[in-house]
């Protein structure tokens, strides 16, 4: 396919940019209006998982590292935040910061070990290290083992806004979610993000261009872990507890599924995937059929039939090409 001349694309691209801005604006308006129609706790759950999946996608979709241990950062931060807020009496925003810092520290350790190998090997390392963290959480006294940390107070944001009000909490979660998404968007569109993508595409070439690839990988790992921690800390405040479920390897698998289903390497794909998987989980939680049966089936289907995910397929379709201003061939 011949490359289309840049000049002829410009008006179209501008239109596409407008279309994209419009869509994002509509989505944000939709999210602001959403608590009128949906149960706020469910929406907050979706937003937390969506942020988690986006953070995960920063690593898988833009750096090409598949981590099968992201639950350690998500669930770990949930524990740290819950402990900081409940035992130390910190305010919610500081509690979340503690969670983020803890997750980033964990990401530094796990990432440092994981990037010593590449591809499938590093995936197994993340999985094993996250499992080690799971056993640590099972036995460490501050996590209260099987019971988890319960009755975490939501507190007052900046000492002013009462987060025990569902709507206040919802808008706080929404604000943090949008902030996280904006951070990811900034990261992937920065020169740093471009280098990450070049590592994903061809690691040896990135090395030959003089980039210290391992440092970039580690930086991406820590950022992804910190953002996953942001989602985890938020979730601990929303549900007011932190349990072993969030650090288990099943959770790591779930976030992979969300990203895969929505579209690896797309900004909004993980959000869509998270919304779908969470809805499915809620729906099947009350039925006889184990949720894993459904999620596992979707997993196999995604891998076999549509590896680009929902949003990825949409981008690849005619509509998507028109929206992004690419000329049909």
């Amino acid at each position: 396919m011949a490359r289309v001349m840049t000049q002829s694309l410009l008006p179209r691209q501008r239109a596409a940019l407008n279309a994209e801005t419009l869509l994002i604006g509509l989505a944000v308006l939709g999210l602001i209006a959403a608590p009128l129609y949906f149960y706020p706790v469910f929406l907050m759950k979706v937003l937390c998982f969506a942020l988690f999946a986006c953070a995960f996608n920063l690593l898988l979709g833009y750096t090409g590292i598949l981590s099968f241990g992201h639950a350690a950062f998500f669930g770990g931060a949930a524990y740290f935040t819950a402990h900081a807020v409940k035992e130390w009496g910190l305010s919610p925003e500081l509690g979340i910061l503690v969670g983020v810092a803890g997750a980033a520290a964990l990401g530094l350790v796990i990432g440092f070990l994981a990037i010593r190998r590449t591809g499938i090997y590093s995936t197994m390392i993340t999985l094993a290290l996250a499992q080690m963290f799971f056993f640590f959480c099972l036995q460490a006294p501050f996590t209260h083992g099987e019971d988890g940390i319960q009755g975490v107070p939501r507190g007052h944001l900046f000492g002013l806004i009462d987060l025990s009000e569902p709507l206040n909490m919802y808008f706080f979660v929404l604000a943090v979610f949008l902030l996280g998404l904006f951070a990811i968007w900034r990261i992937i569109n920065s020169p740093f993000g471009m280098i990450l993508k070049s590592i994903r595409e061809n690691e040896s070439r990135a090395i030959s261009l003089g980039y210290t690839v391992s440092r970039y990988k580690l930086a991406a790992f820590v950022m992804s872990a910190a953002l996953a921690g942001l989602a985890g800390g938020l979730k601990a405040l929303v549900f007011q507890f932190a349990t072993l479920t969030d650090v288990s390897w099943q959770m790591s698998g779930e976030v992979v599924l969300m990203t895969l289903l929505g579209g690896i390497g797309t900004l909004v794909g993980p959000v869509v995937g998270a919304a779908l998987v969470t809805t499915l989980g809620n729906y099947f939680a009350t039925s006889q059929i184990p949720v894993t049966l459904i999620t596992g089936g979707i997993f196999m289907l995604c891998v076999l039939v549509f590896r680009r995910g929902i949003i990825g397929e949409l981008y690849a379709s005619r509509l998507g090409k028109w929206l992004s201003g690419e000329r049909r061939s």
Binding site: T292, L293, G296
Partner: peptide, 9 residues
């Protein structure tokens, strides 16, 4: 991984 989930489920 998906297969394992389906079998166990």
């Amino acid at each position: 991984f998906g297969l394992a989930l389906v079998i166990e489920g």
